[in-house]
Design a binder for these strands. Structure first.
Length: 480
RNA sequence: GGCGCAUUCGUCUAGAGGCCCAGGACACCUCCCUCUCAAGGAGGAGACCAGGGGUUCGAAUCCCCUAUGCGCUACCA
């Protein structure tokens, strides 16, 4: 029987949904579906101190927005639930108990103070910081007495003193650790909740996870996990440690140096398909070298062999560039629909529809629309009268140019469409003895309030006759 | 400090012994197009493949060493 392919993303609900979660989810889902398997969401909320209410829903929403939804998970269902660790605590306690019975783990009653002291001493001697097994050989009687006294305790894994533990990483090959450098890691905290290492192994086993895909940061603790699988007599899953996305200084991507919240990208108006494309490019490439592709392409082509080993720097500039490409590829109707959530209340939607085609090539994020087109929905920004005057012109010549254009526009026959104006304006420029470009620049400033703007004639058309003439009048007045 | 992972243009990467005096993309520069800004098109600059040793007729590609970066080293994940 072929192996059932099941991958999971296991975020901790500790804050805003993180791009790293999206990054891992993307590859988890792509690989799982590539092989006809399932992508599972599991919430690792055993750290109650950092727990954040609402975070779970936001993670789900973010994955949904990106189009990389889980097949199983909290609120979604599936036959291996519950998918929230705090709802599985019985399981962990039972298994910790099993490990104690089988001699693979032991209770440790050491106080935090003693451990802190131990660490200090070891640091002073420049030794690696490891538990000294003070509680390893406690007698039955001592343990009973401590328990009867209600002394808090943790459960520790007893790691072997000799030999090595190794595993094969799908991206990096075989990785080996000396067992003697392994610490007797805490498996169950004194609050009775498991630590990541125990919970992840137990859950991955019972949820039938075939491939553990996670960040590179977990490589060091994988031997602990392998030891646990062995202790339970379970088959180890495949492991793949993805490279870590980095800040510009190459440190692990962080909130301080990057926008790590998926919500932020959504609010800015990055398209989900651009995000996916960009994230996929971080550490992975298409076999045919294509750099613009959609999720289904990734799903079709994904293999771990094509994942890079070194951590890519997260480059917002490149993301923005890809986003622009996706925006330009949208039809006008589609772009209009996508823009709606980014528009302020009460915006003239009929006008928005007219503006979409002229702004499309200039948008890099949907969130820019309002700012870029403000002059088409309200008064143009205030500008200095001197801006109206071309380099080689004078206030007087600018004034004349504006006045003549005003007359021209005022007497134009209906309908008010821009295609037929340009000839007349060019003729006017000739008549005035100035370059057409200079004339257009004077008008641009008068109409848009800026020397840089979307196309002038389309803008005039969208604004309408009355508004345009008004702006020309105001410009003329500015020039005295 | 210990252990581990990594190291090709500024950045993302292609490259799995000869096709590479290293290809593409983003950014940058120039030109074209053009009413400005964009978009688009055409060029350009940019990597002695971290360094040093091997192996080989031949290495970015295999091996070793060094350096550097990063990660882990919590009753966080």
């Amino acid at each position: 029987m072929p192996e059932e392919i099941r991958l999971r993303i296991a975020p901790s609900p500790t804050g805003d949904p993180h791009v790293g979660t999206a990054y891992m989810s993307l590859f988890d889902r792509a690989f799982a579906h590539h092989r006809g398997g399932k992508f599972v969401l599991r919430i690792e909320d055993t750290d109650q101190a950092r727990y954040n209410e609402g975070s779970v829903q936001e993670i789900i929403n973010s994955l949904q927005w990106l189009g990389i939804t889980p097949d199983e998970g909290p609120g979604i269902g599936g036959e291996y639930g519950p998918y929230v660790q705090t709802q599985r605590r019985e399981l962990y306690s039972e298994h910790a108990e099993m490990l104690i019975k089988s001699g693979h783990a032991y209770r440790c009653f050491c106080t935090r103070e003693r451990l802190a002291e131990l660490h200090r001493e070891q640091a002073g001697r420049k030794e690696p910081s490891r538990y000294d097994r003070h509680c390893l050989d406690l007698s039955e009687k001592e343990i009973e007495a401590n328990l009867a006294e209600g002394k808090p305790y943790v459960v520790r894994l007893q790691t072997p003193d000799e030999g090595t533990t190794s595993f094969t990483d799908l991206i990096r090959g075989e990785i080996t650790f000396e067992n003697r450098v392994l610490d007797d890691t805490i498996l169950v905290k004194s609050d009775g909740l498991p630590v990541y290492h125990l919970a992840v192994v137990v859950d991955d086993h019972f949820m039938k996870i075939s491939h553990v895909v996670r960040g590179e940061e977990w490589i060091s603790s994988t031997p602990i996990h392998v030891l646990l699988y062995d202790a339970f007599g379970w088959k180890t899953p495949h492991f793949a440690h993805m490279p870590l996305m980095r800040n510009a200084d190459r440190s692990k991507i962080s909130k301080r140096k990057n926008n790590t919240s998926i919500k932020w990208y959504r609010e800015q108006g990055f398209l989900p398909e651009a995000m996916i494309n960009f994230l996929a490019l971080m550490g992975w490439s298409m076999p045919n070298g294509e750099e613009i592709f959609i999720y289904s392409d990734i799903e079709r082509e994904f293999t771990f062999e094509r994942v890079t080993t070194s951590g890519p720097v997260f480059d917002l500039v490149k993301l923005t560039s890809i986003n622009g490409k996706y925006i330009r590829a949208l039809s006008n109707d589609e772009l209009y629909d996508r823009l709606l959530p980014y528009l302020p209340q009460g915006m003239d939607l009929d006008r928005v529809r007219l503006v979409v085609p002229v702004i499309k090539d200039r948008l890099t994020r949907l969130g820019e629309f309002e700012e870029l087109t403000a002059y088409l929905f309200g008064p143009p920004p205030d500008y200095d009268a001197s801006t109206l005057v071309p380099k080689k012109g004078t206030p007087k010549s600018a004034r004349t140019a504006l006045q003549r254009t005003r007359d021209l526009l005022e007497n134009l026959p209906e309908p008010w469409t821009h295609e037929k104006w340009e000839g007349g304006m060019r003729a006017l420029a000739t008549d005035l003895g100035i370059k057409a470009g200079d004339l257009f620049m004077v008008l641009r400033v008068a109409v848009t309030g800026s020397t840089m703007s979307p196309p002038l004639f389309e803008s005039i058309e969208i604004l309408g006759k009355e508004e345009t003439l008004g702006r020309l009048d105001r410009a003329i007045a500015k020039l005295g």
